[in-house]
Design a protein around this nucleic acid. Structure first.
Length: 280
DNA sequence: TCCCAGGCTCTCT
DNA sequence: AGAGAGCATGGG
């Protein structure tokens, strides 16, 4: 546990002396698709049906604008994983020299705790796709089927999507993924799959549960488990990670990293993409 | 033009 | 159980 130094003033939340939190690294590293940079170290996004603008100042103060104390403590504190001591994790994995440099590279990344349905749906869309186009599809999903909150849109519920047809989803231009989105929505809306219960299962149980959905394999399932169900031992293996594991470790993640596999995965993913790691 | 993108399903051995 | 084609769409 870590003690967070924060206060509310004029309906803004101010956080001081927070380490390991870079906005770009956290919000633009491919774990979430609804954040955009609207100014120098100022980001805007929607989560849990709420619009948030936040800034990191030059003297390391984090400001959450137009945010009540209760929204901060009930939503954003957990969303940004503020309770977790990343310094401690980095220290531990830094016994390994490669993990040391990878974590130095991406030490501003925090693994978000996002909404389960949004995360599952977003990573279904992510398969065999690129981040720019994923964001486009997610935006169209929200604009067409989310709730208009006055200037921005919430992520549509599984119930809403489940009530639609494949033809309705054509506006997304999501290609072959539309039928997977629909299948996921129906299984979640009907209660056949209880997303809220996944955090109480082991990773293997939870992964098997999610893989009952058409279009959800091990990678998409692990992303959902890592980015919205606090299973930080989940380790999504995409093309980048597979490449990086080969080049950096000869194929397998070092033993000392397994306890924090998901967080380490983010460091490696970030490191691999930033350095455009290539085989040979 | 061709290739690829935070994979998965289906089919064929 | 392992390999390989096909998949929708759009950017480089």
């Amino acid at each position: 546990m870590i003690k967070l130094n924060y206060k509310e003033l004029n309906n803004n939340i101010y956080i001081e002396n927070l380490s390991c939190f870079d906005l770009k690294q956290t919000l633009d590293c491919g774990q979430a698709f609804r954040w955009e940079e609207i100014g120098d170290n100022i980001w805007s996004g929607v989560a849990f049906g709420k619009l948030l603008k936040l800034e990191k100042t030059a003297d390391n103060i984090i400001i959450l604008y137009n945010t009540s104390l209760s929204d901060f403590e009930n939503i954003w504190f957990d969303y940004f994983d503020f309770q977790r001591n990343y310094d401690e994790i980095i220290t531990k994995i830094s016994q390994n020299p490669i993990l040391k440099s990878a974590s130095e590279y991406g030490k501003g990344i925090r693994v978000l705790n996002q909404e389960p349905w949004e995360t599952l749906c977003s990573f279904i869309i992510s398969q065999n796709n690129n981040i720019k186009r994923i964001k486009g599809i997610v935006n169209r999903l929200c604009e067409n089927f989310g709730e208009d909150k006055g200037g921005y849109f919430s992520f549509p519920t599984a119930e809403k999507i489940a009530s639609l047809s494949l033809e309705d989803l054509a506006v997304l231009r999501s290609g072959f993924r539309a039928k997977y989105i629909l299948d996921a929505a129906k299984k979640v809306a009907s209660g056949e799959i209880d997303l809220g219960n996944l955090k109480n299962m082991t990773v293997d149980e939870a992964r098997n549960e999610l893989m009952k959905i058409k279009g959800v394999g091990p990678k998409v399932a692990d992303c959902a488990l890592l980015f919205s169900h606090r299973h930080i031992e989940a380790f999504p293996k995409d093309v980048w990670i597979k490449r990086a594991l080969e080049v950096l470790f000869g194929g397998e993640l070092p033993e000392e990293a397994c306890e924090y596999a998901g967080i380490v995965q983010q460091y490696i993913f970030f490191y691999a993409r930033e350095t455009k790691l290539k085989i040979d």
